[in-house]
Design a protein around this nucleic acid. Structure first.
Lengths: 199, 199
DNA sequence: CAAATGACAATAATAATTATTTGTCATTTG
DNA sequence: CAAATGACAAATAATTATTATTGTCATTTG
């Protein structure tokens, strides 16, 4: 169904799996459902992914990369003379993206939250990417004389990410419905920015 | 059973409920179990608490007060010439207490975490107590010229509590087993302290 | 007569049964 | 012969039947 080539590609499977996940949610979607959508036997899918867990992880990995990491990479890559302001934009975007998908793409967000509890490896890789971005921005901020060198950039990067966890970690998603949430983030950021600043 | 007076008191019920909770865990413990332990009919308990939920909340409320709030109130009340240092001790104690009970009093901690998701009112009251303590310490720090007045104390208090959520919010309990957790807290604190400081 | 009881209906949890899904692999297909 | 199939066993999940718990209240007890 909708096949562009006669042989199944990983991308086609991921597309179908994501569509199935969106339709039935991560608790109900089965490998059989995905196979049905593709018009193939479910056994076929096991020639491409060793297990259902692996398929779920692959879908989540791609979703995270496309929906969260890619837009952030873009922000981190913009040349700037104000790395500290860029860091604020970066974290604000991270918060905005997570909260947006939690409400507007809820089934995939649930999938992401579930995989987060199942696969420490996937989380670790994701966190590492964010930390690398933040680390880079902080190092630039140091070069620009905006951010204090009294603490290593990598250490400050972790503190910034963990310190803002309430606003982007999926375990806090139910708190994001509160109307004051973005103001609270802005206020915390003011404090963190003071802590990061050279002065 | 173990009754000091012939009539049941709320305290006796709470003691029995807590004992039952510790024995069976919050998922298995029933009102009937509590009644059995007290040697009374379960209907009697409904003359003291309107529902099982209310009983669970009352037990949790008392536990929170005794195990978490009371020790913190003590720290907040110590007279000091270094309110910023005291604030560090306060938050460190909050983190230590939560993490200690998560591992050493796990059934009651589970009960607390469950009630946290059921009763927004209880959480709100608990948070308010902590915020009042932190607010007080920050206001003192301002008077002592240690903490910046550029942001209202109440706002900074909320930022401090939410900024350290990863280290005391029950949703993050599974991350507390990581060996680096206290170092990460110390590093975040260094950053927050820089942000709070007058300079 | 305040406090507690225990019989009762409604609701929820558990256990037993049935149906689906997951994962394997010898066989088929193009 | 690489790719896919589909029959099969094992593991999960959904359904149903059964048992336990929750919550009420008219009645009993001290």
């Amino acid at each position: 169904m909708n096949k562009l080539s006669s042989f199944l590609s990983k991308t086609e499977i991921l597309n179908a799996a994501e569509q199935t996940l969106r339709k039935y949610g991560p608790d109900k979607a089965s490998v059989t459902d995905v196979a049905k959508l593709l018009g193939v036997s479910h056994g076929t899918l096991y020639r491409h992914f060793p297990s259902k867990a692996a398929l779920r992880e692959a879908v989540t990995e791609r979703w995270l990369e496309e929906m969260i990491v890619a837009p952030l990479t873009e922000i981190a890559a913009i040349p700037t003379t104000n790395a500290l302001g860029q860091l604020r934009d970066y974290i604000a975007k991270l918060v905005e993206l997570k909260q947006h998908h939690a409400s507007q793409d809820s089934e995939m967000f649930k999938m992401y939250a579930a995989v987060t509890e199942e696969s420490a490896a996937l989380v670790e890789v994701h966190i590492r990417k964010l930390l690398d971005h933040i680390d880079l921005l902080i190092a630039q901020g140091m070069e620009q004389g905006l951010i204090s060198r009294s603490i290593p950039a990598a250490v400050q990067a972790r503190s910034v990410l963990y310190g803002t966890a309430r606003f982007h970690h999926p375990a806090h998603a139910y708190e994001w419905r509160s109307p004051g949430i973005m103001q609270e983030f802005a206020q915390l950021w003011t404090l963190l920015e003071r802590g990061l600043s050279e002065h």
